[in-house]
Amino acid sequence: MRIRSLLLGVLAATTLPMVACSSEGQDVPASTVATDPPNGRLIGYQLKRLDQLIESTFDKLLNEAGLTRRQWQTLNTISRGPADMTQLMDALRPFWEVNQENVAEVVAELTARGWVEQGSDSRYLLTPAGREAHGDAANTVDRIRDLSATGVAPEEFDTMMDVMGRLIANLERVG
């Protein structure tokens, strides 16, 4: 799932007011709003906060598994089939372009660990040790997904993804 790219697409086109309006029509300082339960109208705040929590949770739990999030994303992309550097950069761009990380550096790290190798066709593929590392990390990622979806029915999640997709499509037409 390309959650970060979905979130970034909405965030890039969303601006947040510095104050929000209470149900009584009075301005409420933004610092108060951040600690109050979301009122459904602060989509930029909610998306940004969710993105921050996804990123920090992945960083923490994948670090416990001995990986960075970027290493996981690269392993996961290659696990779907061999890919050359251009294909990897295209697949990972939505996750990486904000911080301008270097795909080649991550591939080199994974190669040094013996998890990725370059085939005779210049495409990268997982080694047997890389498939094992990917499987272990996938268990961690599944745990993160379960943690984040606690209390959310599958139908609710599907609806949320549908709505976010439509919001993104609407804003992509503008820019």
Rank of each mutant, 00 (worst) to 15 (best):
residue 58 F to P: 11
residue 28 V to I: 10
residue 43 I to S: 07
residue 92 L to Q: 05
residue 124 Y to S: 11
residue 72 W to P: 04
residue 168 I to H: 00
residue 134 H to P: 04
residue 134 H to M: 07
residue 85 M to N: 07
residue 123 R to C: 14
residue 136 D to V: 12
residue 157 F to M: 15
residue 39 N to K: 09
residue 144 I to W: 02
residue 137 A to W: 02
residue 15 T to Y: 11
residue 51 D to C: 15
residue 139 N to Q: 14
residue 138 A to S: 15
residue 18 M to R: 11
residue 12 A to G: 06
residue 111 T to M: 07
residue 72 W to E: 02
residue 121 D to H: 02
residue 98 V to P: 10
residue 9 G to E: 01
residue 100 Q to K: 12
residue 142 D to P: 11
residue 22 S to A: 05
residue 172 E to D: 00
residue 150 T to L: 10
residue 174 V to D: 00
residue 174 V to F: 04
residue 92 L to R: 14
residue 31 S to Y: 09
residue 175 G to N: 00
residue 108 A to G: 15
residue 171 L to E: 01
residue 24 E to D: 15
residue 112 A to Y: 02
residue 131 R to D: 13
residue 29 P to F: 05
residue 126 L to N: 05
residue 160 M to Q: 14
residue 59 D to M: 04
residue 170 N to F: 00
residue 108 A to V: 12
residue 155 E to Q: 03
residue 130 G to F: 03
residue 108 A to W: 03
residue 71 Q to S: 13
residue 52 Q to E: 12
residue 17 P to Y: 01
residue 66 G to E: 01
residue 10 V to C: 01
residue 175 G to V: 02
residue 44 G to C: 04
residue 15 T to E: 06
residue 69 R to Q: 13
residue 24 E to C: 12
residue 30 A to R: 09
residue 44 G to P: 02
residue 156 E to L: 13
residue 101 E to T: 07
residue 64 E to S: 13
residue 174 V to M: 02
residue 57 T to V: 03
residue 50 L to H: 06
residue 86 T to D: 05
residue 82 P to R: 06
residue 14 T to F: 02
residue 140 T to V: 03
residue 151 G to Y: 00
residue 85 M to H: 13
residue 56 S to Y: 11
residue 44 G to D: 01
residue 84 D to H: 04
residue 172 E to T: 01
residue 101 E to S: 14
residue 118 Q to K: 13
residue 50 L to R: 08
residue 19 V to M: 07
residue 67 L to C: 05
residue 19 V to S: 15
residue 21 C to Y: 13
residue 80 R to I: 11
residue 80 R to V: 10
residue 115 W to E: 05
residue 46 Q to G: 04
residue 142 D to C: 09
residue 21 C to N: 06
residue 143 R to C: 06
residue 47 L to Q: 03
residue 39 N to Y: 12
residue 52 Q to Y: 12
residue 96 W to R: 06
residue 101 E to D: 08
residue 121 D to A: 08
residue 125 L to I: 15
residue 169 A to W: 01
residue 100 Q to T: 12
residue 151 G to L: 04
residue 144 I to Q: 00
residue 170 N to Q: 09
residue 23 S to E: 03
residue 175 G to P: 00
residue 26 Q to R: 15
residue 27 D to S: 13
residue 126 L to V: 00
residue 167 L to T: 04
residue 86 T to R: 09
residue 20 A to T: 11
residue 13 A to K: 03
residue 18 M to I: 13
residue 14 T to N: 09
residue 97 E to L: 12
residue 155 E to K: 13
residue 99 N to Y: 09
residue 131 R to C: 11
residue 81 G to L: 03
residue 146 D to A: 13
residue 98 V to A: 08
residue 48 K to R: 12
residue 24 E to M: 15
residue 128 P to C: 08
residue 49 R to W: 14
residue 62 L to Q: 02
residue 50 L to Q: 10
residue 33 V to P: 11
residue 82 P to I: 10
residue 7 L to W: 02
residue 114 G to C: 07
residue 79 S to W: 04
residue 172 E to G: 03
residue 46 Q to L: 07
residue 15 T to W: 10
residue 94 P to E: 03
residue 96 W to L: 10
residue 92 L to V: 03
residue 163 V to E: 01
residue 171 L to K: 00
residue 160 M to V: 11
residue 5 S to Y: 03
residue 119 G to L: 05
residue 74 T to G: 08
residue 131 R to A: 02
residue 20 A to L: 15
residue 50 L to N: 14
residue 162 D to H: 14
residue 92 L to P: 10
residue 74 T to Y: 04
residue 162 D to I: 11
residue 35 T to R: 11
residue 92 L to M: 08
residue 132 E to I: 08
residue 144 I to R: 00
residue 34 A to E: 06
residue 50 L to C: 13
